[in-house]
Design a binder for these strands. Structure first.
Lengths: 109, 109
DNA sequence: AGCATAGTTCAACAAGATTTGAACTATTCC
DNA sequence: GGAATAGTTCAAATCTTGTTGAACTATGCT
């Protein structure tokens, strides 16, 4: 049957919801890895988080529902893709700023 | 006595903490109102949120601790100021993207 | 000193977010 | 059809956030 994974229309997406979705280390990291704009399989082994697959599914769903990603169903595997162009049109500069910023700062030595 | 309101060194500020701080409608709105870079008094009547002063104090503290604002003590009144230049150097384009994006979208009619 | 004003802190509560494991659905392959 | 693979959903447990009201600290004013 039509198992469908709808993302909200970009016009209805609110900034605060984008921020809430990205205000989590796991999801921020996912988005950074999606930065190339290409679809990435949801397959647990592709992501090296120490999380159960149900937790990973929860984060993927959060990102999709916030309007950040699209889901592409491909037989038995699913892929997610950053909605880079749409997000850029709706919130100019935001995604670039998030992705280009250094992932982490090493402690002062 | 020295009642002090320390903000973290900008170099130690992590993006995810900035995002967590801004992932709340009240705090996002505060930051938008601070966009002019000038100090704004914390005085409850200056902000028209429907919140107790303790809740407002909680949000101001969250923003300061996340590294987003500075506190300026001026006798019995306090002011907060967006750390615009420092944030811009640390996370280029981020604050601009947040501030320039439309505050809200009206529901489709 | 005494009082008013500005703001903070604290404990308690309510509401939300995250994780886990188990059960479930959908798809592919033999 | 049956087994394996990929992913979702659900309830339960736990943790984190935001709000309130009351008590408190600090400063200014008379």
């Amino acid at each position: 049957m039509s198992t469908d994974y709808p993302s909200p229309d970009i016009e209805t997406v609110q900034l605060v919801d984008i921020l809430r979705a990205l205000a989590d280390p796991t999801r921020l990291q996912i988005v950074r890895l999606l930065a190339d704009g290409k679809p990435h399989p949801k397959t647990q082994s592709e992501w090296d988080f120490e999380l159960q697959k149900s937790a990973l599914a929860y984060h993927f769903k959060s990102l999709r529902e916030a309007g950040i990603t699209n889901t592409i169903v491909n037989g038995r595997t699913h892929e997610i893709q950053l909605r880079r162009e749409e997000l850029n049109a709706r919130f100019p500069g935001l995604i670039d700023a998030l992705i280009s910023s250094t992932p982490d700062t090493s402690p002062a030595s």
